[in-house]
């Protein structure tokens, strides 16, 4: 077990977004989180990366790092948590003043202070992995949405995280560009990256996930392997949701 989460709760002002969440993330496995908007799935993902500070809950990592959010965690602990994972954003959030290559090398060189030549080599191989080696000297605005998102994935991989987090990585993309991003994520799954993916792509979740969580109203409503949760859901809310997104009209 890479990470076990117990009793995770988070409110924004009066609104309880996460209520007593329990999740276990297994090493080398892909966990997908699905659910209607406002169900808390993105907040859950952001808690994993300390972009949101949980109100309560305990994170236990396999290396012994334990964080209890009952009290506000220190900056060092937030940083330690953050450095365990790489994040891919819905809106890419590439650094517009840096080339694709510089976006990828920024973390390893500036934050991790790794050797520049090694990082350069690593970054080029990562950009090759996402199919963008020939575009490495272009700035984000010169790339399509799908290409930007693939750079975003390479940037997250470059810090060599234990855990990759994806926040609706294809939701901002034109339909014809979704495939190229999903293909990259599927390749990562084959390489046994541990990943947590918030997505609306049912078919993709089915193919890539080892486990699926369905969330609604701040709770985990259903939890299990994709062929159970997505093919034969027990809960009515899951059934309704899947029906709505599979047959939108």
């Amino acid at each position: 077990m890479l990470l076990s989460i117990k009793g995770l709760a988070k409110s924004f002002n009066e609104l309880e977004v996460l209520k007593d969440i329990e999740v276990e993330i297994e090493k080398g496995k892909v966990l997908s989180i699905m659910g209607p908007s406002g169900s808390g799935k993105t907040t859950l993902l952001r808690c994993l990366n300390a972009l949101e500070q949980p109100d309560r809950g305990i994170f236990t990592f396999d290396d012994g790092l334990t964080l209890n959010f009952e009290k506000k965690i220190s900056k060092q602990d937030a940083l330690r948590l953050r450095r365990k994972s790489g994040m891919v954003f819905q809106s890419y959030n590439l650094f517009p003043h840096k080339t694709a290559l510089e976006n990828v090398t920024e973390g390893p060189i500036i934050v991790q202070k790794r050797n520049k030549a090694d990082v350069q080599e690593l970054a080029e191989s990562l950009l090759e992995k996402v199919g963008l080696k020939d575009k490495m000297n272009l700035y984000p605005h010169q790339l399509s949405g799908g290409q930007q998102q693939r750079v975003g994935i390479a940037r997250a991989l470059a810090i060599e995280p234990e855990l990759m987090l994806f926040d609706e990585p294809t939701s901002a993309l034109d339909p014809e560009l979704i495939g190229e991003v999903l293909t990259v994520i599927k390749d990562l799954a084959k390489e046994n990256w541990t990943m947590v993916i918030v997505t609306h792509e049912v078919q993709f979740a089915e193919q890539v996930s080892d486990e699926v969580i369905f969330m609604d109203g701040g709770y985990i409503v259903e939890h299990g392997p994709p062929d159970k949760v997505l093919k034969a859901p027990r809960e009515q809310r899951t059934q309704q949701f899947l029906q709505r997104i599979l047959n939108p009209s």
């Binding site: 990366n49 953050r82 790489g86 959030n93 590439l94 650094f95 500036i110 934050v111 940037r155 997250a156």
Partner: peptide, 21 residues
Amino acid sequence: SKGQWEAAYTIGMTQNTALRR
């Protein structure tokens, strides 16, 4: 945009480094 701060944080930057870089 706030996303730029967040992206900087997720690659491990502190607030100061994010501001500067």
